[in-house]
Every structure is written in structure tokens, then in C-alpha cells.
Design a protein around this nucleic acid. Sequence first.
DNA 1: TGTATTTAGTTCATATAATAATTATTATTA
DNA 2: TAATAATAATTATTATATGAACTAAATACA
Lengths: 137, 137
Amino acid sequence: MDQYANSTLFSVINAGKSLEQDLSEALGRIGLSMAKYGALCVLAASAEPLPLSVCARRMTCVRSNITQLMDRLAADGLIEREADPLDRRSVRAKLTSKGAELQLAGDQICSDIESDLAGLFEAQEAKILRSTLHRIS
Amino acid sequence: MDQYANSTLFSVINAGKSLEQDLSEALGRIGLSMAKYGALCVLAASAEPLPLSVCARRMTCVRSNITQLMDRLAADGLIEREADPLDRRSVRAKLTSKGAELQLAGDQICSDIESDLAGLFEAQEAKILRSTLHRIS
DNA sequence: TGTATTTAGTTCATATAATAATTATTATTA
DNA sequence: TAATAATAATTATTATATGAACTAAATACA
């Protein structure tokens, strides 16, 4: 928004929202949301099926959220729940082959956006951009 | 997230989320959410009560969202709805005095965070940061 | 003037996220 | 071992966001 032109706070927040919307729209075209893609990435990065509480920690969100998200992912056929015989409280999620495929498609979408972004900056600017942003988060 | 260290896309998205969370928590301490504070700002920036559809446009969101948000703000005693005698379809929202006060308190919170941020960067870095971010959104 | 279109706002359905409360199971410890 | 703690997941409630369908009112236009 224009009234925030001199605000670093809202420059960052608004740019983040703008990119999130771009990514969200592109993911939407292959049937994914940000939340769903994030969960698929967490599962894809693990060699083993993951307990839902581990997913919650890695996605920096609460467990009840993961329960619902996994419900939706399971309804889409992208993950499966499996019981953990060593701890009967635990439920572990694993990607289906369809889930693994969609995760890769999501990665490609991120790469495409990253390429578009690269065209906006000089190399030195991009370096400073990432350096300053990493001090924030 | 560490796996995104080389991604400008996620550097921006994550930094945005991080600041949004800081702001959101600080606003929460005075009873506001990001959405509520945003609506109060739109109303505070206007000399006149605003039709809800104008609020929706300025907040870049859909009208049904504004209906619900104004319901909650009205329940908090922060805004009032009033009929527009010139167009009987239209409903206009205006700040109550309590709403105007809380909006100012929110502004102060933003200023404080902005000051904290300023300490993270050299002047030249801050300039490049804002310049590059504005090319994104 | 009367019909069609547009606009304003609301309601409903759904997705997403958080918190609190609940259940089942495991771990601790007196 | 029995009572207590902690942990894993779920359910329920609330806030926030979107889109579709709906009602009422204003506008266009034939």
C-alpha cells in the first residue's frame, strides 16, 4: 500500500504477501494450497513416515492444525496415515505416489517464480536483499 | 527455514511472516488482530464513514470478509454501521471513539517495531531493501 | 415505462490457522 | 504397583479468508 512507502515493516510484509499470493495461485492450478504444499515438502524431505507431532514442529504450527490438514491431504489421496506399532498413541503420515508427484510439481513452480524474481535485481542487490531479510527471520 | 537459505522467494515470504507474527502478537496485547487493525486504519484514513465495498477494495479483500470483520469490530465497540440515505443498498462504517483510540495505539506499535528494524541495517542496506521489495509488490 | 444489468451487502460453504479441552497411551515416581 | 505426569492425536470453538448464491436497490437501455 502506498501509505507504507517509507515503512520497512510494511515493505517486507506486503512483498511477502504478494509473493505468497503468486505462489498460492500457481499452486492452486495444480490443486495445492500453500499449507498442503508445505506439508508435502516436509514429508518429501524425510526418508521415513513422520509422526504428526513432528510435522507440526517442522511446519511451525500446532498439532490440531496438522490433524485437519492431513485429513484434507488424505481426502485428496496425497498422504496416508499409518499406525506406529512402537507407540500406539502415534500416527505417522507418508506421501502417496500421487503426493510425491505433486510435491515435485510444486517445487518446479517455486523454481519458476524464483527465476522470475532473479530478473528483478542486480546480483549485488539480490545478495543484500537476502542478507537483510535473514537478519529479520 | 534453513532449506530456503538460497531462495529469494522464501527469504521474502518467511521474513514477511516473521514480522507479521511480531506485529500480530503486539497488536493482540491491545485486543487487536492484523485484520482488525487494518480495517481501523482504512477508516481512520478517511474523513467520511466508508461504504463496506470501499473498505473491501482498500483492504484488497472480498466483501463477505468485510461483512464478518465489521460484525466483529462492531461487537468490540470499535466501529458503527450507518445507513446511507442517498443509496439504500449501502452501509457505511465509521470509527467509534474507542476505535479511533485503538487505531492510534496500533500505529504506535508499528512505529516501535519499525525502530527495532532500523537497528538491524546500515542506511544503504535499508534503502536497497525497500527498493528491491517495492519491485516485488 | 418496463426489462435487463449492475451494484451493495449478506449468508452459506469451505479452507486455513490458533487455542482449549478431551481421550488414549506412555513414562515417571513415590 | 498405583498414582501422577507427560505426550500424541483428536474434537470443538473461534478468527480469518475466499467464492458462490441470494436479496434488495439502483442504473441502463430498448
